[in-house]
Each structure stands twice: as structure tokens, then as C-alpha cells.
């Protein structure tokens, strides 16, 4: 049996050690919100984001293709991702911002209501296996809230965007 002094020394040693921290890996994503849904985009695929000044509707287009705008000297299509996924019938009128995603020499704009900027999310991604949400790569968490991680590469695979 340990002496009292030994027990004290052992306790002191244990207390002197740093507490075990939560070491879950974190990943940086560019975050946006649309209709209450939080979206995350890979930094490498975000060309830019900004406020929408003009929007020219596309004659005869489906509701998800909201229009085109000039962006850095090029014509950019703007889509409403939730309508594209069929989760909303029509987009809301006021979507003052967009994020421009690019991959493989192509660019496309996603309309959003709120730009949240770069933030850390849980890097432990739950890979999305379904086919019903084009562009959705994975789902993760940010302070307990679900983040839908979008991949421009996957998004361009949708036949409706093939041209």
C-alpha cells in the first residue's frame, strides 16, 4: 500500500499533466446560407462571391436557372440550388448575393441570401451517397448545425448543366 506522501505525489503528478482536449480535425469551408440551409464550399473552388447588381432572366428557362449577370468581364449563369434539387418550387425574390464556383475552366453562380465567409467546420465528412442532390458531396457539422458541402466538379456533372 502506498504511503500518504506517495498518494499525494501521484495526485500532484496527475494534476500537473495537461487535460485531454477534444482533438477533432477541422476543415475550412466558405459558408453561405440559402432558405435556412447552410452550404459549405471548398476554398479552391470558390472564385469569388459578392452582391448581385443585375440579373437578366433567361427566356424559356426552368425556375432554377434564375438568369445571367456580368461577372469579371464574363457572362455568368446564376442558379438557385434548392430549386435545382427540387426542394423548393420557386426561389424567393430577394437573393442579393451569389458565390461563383469554378472547376475545370467552367464557372457558375449560386444565389444565396447570406454570405458567412470562411469558417472552420468539422472535417469528419459524411460522404453523400445519393443522386438526388447534384453537387452535394458530403454533410458535416459546424457548431452543431448541418453543413451541406458542395463540389463544383460534381455539380457540373449534372446533365442539365452539360449544355
Amino acid at each position: 500500500m502506498k504511503s500518504y506522501a506517495e498518494q499525494l505525489a501521484q495526485r500532484a503528478k496527475a494534476l500537473a499533466q495537461r487535460p485531454v482536449e477534444d482533438t477533432a480535425p477541422m476543415a475550412e469551408l466558405v459558408l453561405m446560407r440559402r432558405a435556412g440551409v447552410l452550404f459549405g464550399f471548398h476554398v479552391a473552388e470558390v472564385e469569388s462571391s459578392g452582391r448581385l447588381r443585375e440579373l437578366t432572366p433567361v427566356p424559356g428557362a426552368d425556375d432554377w436557372l434564375r438568369g445571367i449577370t456580368m461577372h469579371r468581364g464574363n457572362v455568368l449563369s446564376l442558379i438557385d440550388l434548392l430549386v435545382f434539387w427540387g426542394e423548393l418550387k420557386r426561389g424567393v425574390a430577394d437573393m442579393p448575393s451569389f458565390v461563383c464556383l469554378s472547376h475545370g475552366g467552367r464557372s457558375i453562380g449560386l444565389l444565396v441570401e447570406e454570405l458567412l465567409g470562411l469558417d472552420e467546420t468539422d472535417a469528419r465528412l459524411e460522404v453523400w451517397q445519393g443522386n438526388d442532390r447534384p453537387g452535394l458531396e458530403a454533410v458535416t457539422q459546424r457548431r452543431g448545425e448541418r453543413v451541406h458541402v458542395i463540389s463544383a466538379e460534381r455539380l457540373f456533372l449534372d446533365p442539365r448543366l452539360a449544355g
Binding site: E54, T56, V58, A61, M70, L76, S77, S107, G163
Partner: peptide, 23 residues
Amino acid sequence: PKELGRFPALSSATQLGDGRLAF
């Protein structure tokens, strides 16, 4: 953009005097 290739009647776009685009 390529995705507008599904609309054959739209050949290009142009920016008019007020800055807005027209097909």
C-alpha cells in the same frame, strides 16, 4: 456559358448602355 447551350435560340449576350445584359 456552356449550360445555356440547351437554348439554341440564344447565341450570345451583350451589355446594353445601362449595364444590363440582353441575349
